[in-house]
Design a protein around this nucleic acid. Structure first.
Lengths: 202, 202
DNA sequence: TGAAAAGTAAACTGGTTAGTGCAAAAATAC
DNA sequence: GTATTTTTGCACTAACCAGTTTACTTTTCA
């Protein structure tokens, strides 16, 4: 059973792609519906056939593409493997996620929109920002098994994430630093593991 | 010698205050010059008498108030005091700076403006974000004196700042968390010092 | 007191914007 | 090949916005 791709669906996707591209370039406020139509190579009237208003288009884009980028990580705590190796793998996974360029551009749009529209997406944004569940599950397990020192797993998790985002996410979001190479990711993961385990290893 | 405050200066200040307040509420793009004049309780023509264009007004506000918020911290490394105590004092100083509500609101405006106008303020923004010089000087001194393990002081510094900003700055900027209370600042400083020194103490 | 400087209100220019109405054209479906 | 759906182009609205002009009032200051 092949999936039917109607012309309507193609147009709709072109609108979404064009809008995202324009938002990334100019920001939401400075992107007009005419510009979106032009970028998408579609009549302005078609844009309004698919989305009732600019507000709905913005909402749709941020929400839907947000969903696409929820990364599922299934690395679970394993008593037989060295802590260093397990944690390094987890952090590399996180870093690959944070360093994803498409995601960063999307987040830039979302932040730009949310900064002055609080209450609208902040709930969903929080979900995303607090979503590194594999990592926190791992920390809890390791503490339960006595291989990490007893401490607040939320705090330990927040510290790890801060260390990663401080080098591999925020400077890139603000255009201060280029996206990390895979060598830099390896180095950062190793450094962070050493730092973390010096304090938290039981 | 008393400082003369002319009416012109009062009007000018009202414009700046009104513009900043409007920018914080709506963002730069969605704030019109009419709205600024209204907020400042000033005629629109007066706004243009003081600032040639909206662009200049935005530039002025972000730059000038940026300047006001450069915090000078003069805590220097002291061989006679325990590392913990010195570092705790330094971090509390940093945290007071990062938690300053006025600064956060200003940074929100600056970020919102810069996200889609890169190359304009990013140089100045970088200056600010890399400005914690007292802290890095202290780390270098402590490493030189052999009380911190030999390591890259830039990396150690970046890690410290990441740990602080991850809890006391970014969540607040994104409206996810309220500004930290002074008790919370104390706790965070203490936690961070313990974490840091577990790895870096010689 | 009187001239210069600064501020004001309101209308106006030239431009942009979100969103609509409509008839023709093109693609799709059967 | 006809009926239906979708797209298109284009004109139109009502509002908004940066910036200007004008005719006027208020403040400053010497």
């Amino acid at each position: 059973m092949t999936v039917k791709v109607t012309r309507s669906m193609l147009k709709r996707q072109a609108i979404i792609d064009g809008a995202l591209s324009a938002f990334q370039q100019y920001g939401v406020s400075d992107t007009s519906m005419d510009k979106i139509a032009e970028t998408a190579q579609v009549s302005k009237r078609t844009v309004y056939n698919h989305f009732e208003s600019k507000e709905q288009l913005v909402t749709h884009i941020i929400k839907e593409i947000w969903q696409q980028n929820i990364l599922t990580c299934d690395i679970e705590y394993d008593a037989d493997i060295a802590l260093d190796a397990q944690l390094t793998a987890l952090l590399k996974n996180e870093l690959d996620f944070l360093s994803n360029q498409n995601l960063q551009e999307l987040i830039r749009v979302a932040i730009g929109y949310c900064l002055f529209n609080p209450d609208i997406f902040t709930a969903e944004m929080s979900e995303f920002f607090d979503q590194e569940t594999a990592l926190i599950r791992w920390i809890k397990q390791a503490m339960l098994q006595g291989r990490l020192r007893q401490a607040d797993p939320q705090v330990a998790h927040a510290q790890l994430i801060s260390l990663l985002k401080g080098q591999a996410f925020w400077p890139q979001i603000l255009h201060q630093q280029p996206v990390l190479s895979s060598d830099q990711i390896d180095t950062l993961a190793a450094e962070t593991v050493a730092f973390f385990l010096a304090y938290y290893r039981a």
